[in-house]
Structure formats: C-alpha cells, structure tokens
C-alpha cells in the first residue's frame, strides 16, 4: 500500500498521512475532541446534580456529611500524584526513554488501583449503612426520598468515574508494555500522549466530583 500512489514508506507513519507532524496533530486534536465529548457526557449528570441540589439543599448537605472526607481527600491526593507520574511518563516517551516511561506508567497504574481499592471500601461502607439506593435504602435524617436522590447521583457519578478509571488502567497497562518494548519514539508517541490526556481528564473529573459530593456545606 505504502508504495502506491503518493504514499510513503516511513516507519510508524500511517499511509494516509503526509508527515509525522500531521499525524501527531491529528491524534492530539482527536483526543481533545473526544474529551469534549466526555465533558458533555458527565455534563448531563452534573446538570441533574445541580438541579436537585438547588431544590433540596438541606438534605443534600446532610447526606454529603455521611461521606468520609478522609478517604475522599486521600483519594484526591492519590490521583493528583498519579497525574504527575503520568505526565513524567509521557515526557519519558517523548524523549525516547522507554524503560523510564514504562516504570512511571506502572507507578501510575498502581496509584490508580489504590484509588479504586479505596473507592471500593467507601462503597462497602455505604452498603453497610444502607445508603445504596433501592429497596433496602435507609436514611436516618428527615426527607429520606431526597437523600436517596443524592446517593443515586453519588453512585452514578462516582461509578461512571470509576468505570473511566478502569478503562484508564487497562490503557495505561497496555502503553506500559508498549513503552517497555520501545514502541514510542520522539516522532510517534501519540498513543502514549493520548492515554496521558485521558488520564488527566479522568483526574480532573474527580477534582470536580470531590468538592461537589464531599465538601458541600462544610466550612
């Protein structure tokens, strides 16, 4: 194929691109566009949260106070740290230091897993407290139905976020293996960079979720 028409034979450059720069620009723009889509995807839930919180501020505050601020803060720190390791890993890939990048990616992967484990403990706590929406839902304070709304949104938003984390961890694992085998060059580390962007995005979502869900009404 590459010899056909006005194609080329450069390694790591897809046949339909003219140059590495064009390929890289396309990959980056594509990833950013995808992230815009993701923002709108979460946006629906944020909108629902905004509507109900403004309708029932008191019970949302009361429900929020049952969440563990310690675990939430810990997880926030973990994620920010993982963003740092991710950024360094991308830098490693860009400068051709595949082994270093792979090591940093593994670290990112571990931090991401720690986040999920902690999240798992939090979910378990909710389960024990009967704060999981459904037939067995129970809330001590007044206005239990709207408290259930809060917890529905809590589980939907953090659950969707956790799903993104899981996808992210799989991606990070994949690029770690590729990085270790030296697949990324200064000309083409686009997939690594895209994964990095995705990871930062998922962190950023958490940076919004944490204050909205954990910190409201605390002074």
């Amino acid at each position: 194929m590459a010899s056909e028409g006005h194609g080329h034979d450069l390694p790591g450059l897809a046949h339909h691109f003219d140059s590495y720069a064009q390929q890289r620009d396309s990959a980056t723009l594509g990833m950013w566009t995808f992230l815009v889509t993701e923002i709108l995807f979460f946006g629906g839930l944020f909108a629902a949260y905004g509507v109900y919180r403004s309708l029932y501020p008191e019970v949302f505050r009361a429900s929020s106070h049952t969440l563990s601020i310690q675990l939430g803060t810990f997880n926030t720190v973990v994620l920010i740290a993982s963003s740092l390791t991710m950024a360094l890993a991308v830098r490693g890939g860009q400068t051709g230091k595949g082994k270093l990048a792979a090591a940093l990616l593994v670290l990112t992967l571990i931090l991401g897993s720690v986040f999920l484990v902690v999240k798992g403990f939090e979910y378990h706590e909710k389960f024990v407290e009967h704060h999981v929406p459904g037939a067995s839902f129970h809330f001590e304070g007044p206005d239990a139905p709207h408290a259930q709304l809060f917890f529905s949104l809590y589980f939907l938003m953090t659950g969707l976020h956790a799903l993104h984390m899981i996808i992210g961890i799989v991606l990070v694992g994949y690029v770690a293996i590729r990085a270790a085998s030296g697949a990324y060059t200064p000309e083409n580390y686009n997939f690594l960079e895209g994964t990095g962007l995705y990871w930062h995005f998922v962190d950023l979502i958490w940076i919004f979720l944490f204050p909205l869900l954990y910190l409201i009404g605390r002074h």
Binding site: Y56, V59, G141, P142, D143, A144, P145, H146
Partner: peptide
Amino acid sequence: LNPAAKVVAGYQP
C-alpha cells in the same frame, strides 16, 4: 407527601 422536604422555621421534621 414528603413533610420533611421544606419544614417551616421553628418546627421539627
């Protein structure tokens, strides 16, 4: 239907 949603000041739910 949902008395605790908006409680008048000075009263308990």
